[in-house]
Design a protein around this nucleic acid. Structure first.
Lengths: 242, 242
DNA sequence: ATCTGGGGCTGATCTATATCAGCTCAGTAT
DNA sequence: ATACTGAGCTGATATAGATCAGCCCCAGAT
């Protein structure tokens, strides 16, 4: 079975998957689609009967306010679910758009609910994946609620690095990052102008450089210390325990 | 079977529970405990093998920062799970403390994981409950990231009201609310001083009055409009669909 | 009957961040 | 070769909300 399918790699890190579970996941993998930047996968408010798994590229989920502002809730990287919550809640309370061109695998509601009933261990794994998602949203809430702009940006870049490292797309040296300063601003509750200033400051202080689509950790330890970054919850999240 | 057990009422709103599922839930209900204000249920960082269901009273989950600040992630009301995430992630990334004296039912990890395997429909219901929790955290993120202090407080009071209404503890007239202005501040990323000012302003403008442990919606429609409150996601969350 | 502490309330001051306005530069379309 | 566009960058100014300092009120403890 192909261990390089991102979803299998991800769920497999939590539970040992049986043959039938693996083959179910692999069968899902047939239904693939491509979305280009600018073409939303899911619109906020749309009654939604499908979720996706992100195979390649980056996406983001966001909420729009009446006044035209938006809050990006989370960025998704390969292996992540897209719109899982809207599948259970019946209506999408958020929109999802690609950050880069992406490839996804579609999961329709009935298949998914069937799978939960017939492969209960898979249900546990999905529950675990959802716990991880929720943990990163909580982390974003703490960023926005209690850290000043500099700590906030620093912490965000570190957390993203840790997530990417788990799927082999980053290290403590840095990572390729297709986000614009505008996206960063929408995620962190700052203005783009201010994000720019903060990035400059972090660069001048020799901690991180985010330029030309790359995040370089110039002084990882100093940055971790400055941002008050606790990665324990991410370490554990990747552990096999069941 | 006693439909007044909060957890059964909650999960039962999502799926029709079978006899065996009901009896499993009822058997859980034997292991009850009481916690007084000031005695934390779960400490941040504690390796944790138990979650709880809140039977009566209010609690809150929070994260502490190094600098002594804290961000309250969510308040829990009767019927909510406490610490479900930390059960899956193995370590608690957050603390939980009672807001009032509370009664809880303990769920230990092994029981829970067993139940997921043997009553798969229950797993789906738990997944759904978790989706609801995540949706409220997302809503808090939007509050903190994109709404000014007045809209933020207004929106929060409305959302809390909607949640309480779902479990029969509130209406569009208002609800009993044991939160202090300090707790509100910690949840909304504001200072207690500012929360006080904002509450006064909302009261003087005739929209809500929060005093003496009661939230009174003086002009519900105006408040909904002012806060840009969308309750669609809550309506749907309570619908039977599976 | 007084003290104490927690919660709520308020004005004065300070500061972090938004907003505005405009610049550079690279890539791309004309 | 020229214009156009989007992203990044910067200084000047405005403002929302934090912080500080201190008040009142009430309930429970001494």
């Amino acid at each position: 079975m192909d261990k390089n399918i991102p979803l299998i790699r991800k769920l497999g890190a939590f539970i040992a998957l049986s043959e039938s579970e693996l083959s179910f996941l692999a069968s899902l993998h047939k239904r693939r689609r491509t979305f280009a930047v600018g073409s939303d996968l899911v619109h906020q408010g749309q009654p939604d009967q499908a979720a996706y798994v992100l195979d390649s590229g980056w996406a983001c989920s966001y909420k729009l306010l009446e006044n035209g502002q938006r809050q990006i809730v989370d960025f998704q990287i390969p292996g992540d679910f897209l719109g899982l919550r809207s599948l259970l809640l019946n209506v999408s309370d958020h929109g999802i758009e690609p950050v880069t061109d992406i490839k996804v695998t579609k999961i329709c509601a009935t298949d998914f609910l069937n799978a939960l009933e017939h492969t209960p261990r898979l249900a546990t794994a999905v529950l675990w994946a959802m716990s991880c998602d929720e943990a990163t949203v909580v982390e974003r809430l703490v960023d926005v609620g209690r850290r000043n702009s500099t700590e906030r940006v620093a912490h965000f870049l570190l957390e993203l690095g840790a997530r990417l490292t788990l799927v082999g797309l980053g290290s403590t040296d840095g990572y390729a990052c297709p986000l614009t300063q505008y996206l960063l601003a929408d995620a962190l509750g700052l203005s783009a102008v201010h994000v720019n200033r903060v990035l400059r400051q972090l660069r001048e202080e020799g901690m991180v450089t985010f330029q030309n689509g790359f995040v370089d950790f110039d002084n990882y330890d100093q940055l971790v210390n400055f941002a008050g970054f606790e990665q324990s919850y991410m370490d554990k999240a990747g552990q096999l325990r069941y």
